[in-house]
Computed example of a mutant assay.
Amino acid sequence: MQSEVSSPMRFAGVQGRVFEFIRGSASLSYVLISAIVIFLLDTWSPLHFAVAVLYSVVVVLATLWFKRLGTIRTAAFCAFLTGLSYIITHGADLDSAASARTLISLAAIAITTKLALLNIATRERLIMVGKEKDNLARFFPPAIVEQIATNDIALSTTRYEPAAVLFVDMIGFTKFCSVLQPQDVIAMLRELLCTLSASVFEHQGTVDKFTGDGLIAVFGLPVVNDLSATNAVRCALTMQARLQAWNDERAASGLEAVAVAIGIHYGAVVLGDVGCESRLELTVLGDTVNVASRVEHHCREAKASILITDAVVRRMQSEGSEGAVRRFTDRGFHTIRGHSDAIRLFAIPRDAALNVNQLLAG
Rank of each mutant, 00 (worst) to 15 (best):
G172A: 11
I171W: 14
P162C: 02
E146I: 11
D152S: 09
D169P: 00
K175H: 11
L136G: 04
E146N: 15
L136H: 04
I148C: 08
S178V: 06
P162M: 03
F173Y: 11
L126V: 11
Y160P: 05
S156P: 00
L136A: 08
K131V: 15
P141S: 14
A154L: 00
L180R: 04
G130M: 07
V129L: 15
F167Q: 03
L155P: 02
K175A: 04
C177H: 10
V129T: 14
Y160I: 05
C177M: 12
T174E: 02
A137W: 10
L126S: 12
D169F: 05
M170V: 15
A149D: 14
R125A: 06
I144T: 06
P142T: 11
R138M: 15
F167R: 01
T150H: 01
A149N: 13
L155C: 10
P141W: 12
F140W: 13
C177W: 09
R125D: 01
F173K: 01
F140A: 14
I148N: 03
R138Y: 14
I127Y: 15
G130R: 08
V165Y: 08
A163P: 04
V145K: 04
I127D: 14
F139G: 00
G130E: 06
M128Q: 14
F173T: 06
D169W: 03
A137H: 10
A143L: 10
P141T: 13
R125P: 05
A137K: 04
I171D: 13
T158D: 04
N135S: 13
K131F: 12
G130F: 10
G130C: 02
N135R: 11
R138K: 15
D134S: 15
P141H: 13
I148A: 00
P141Q: 11
F167Y: 09
I144D: 05
A164M: 07
F167V: 07
P142V: 10
V179Y: 15
K133W: 01
D134K: 14
T158A: 06
F176M: 14
R125C: 01
F176N: 09
I153Q: 00
D134Q: 13
P142L: 11
R138F: 13
A149S: 15
I127T: 12
F176A: 08
G130P: 09
I127L: 13
L166E: 00
F139T: 05
E124C: 00
A163R: 02
K175N: 08
R138L: 15
V165W: 12
G130Y: 04
A143G: 08
A154H: 04
F140K: 12
V129K: 15
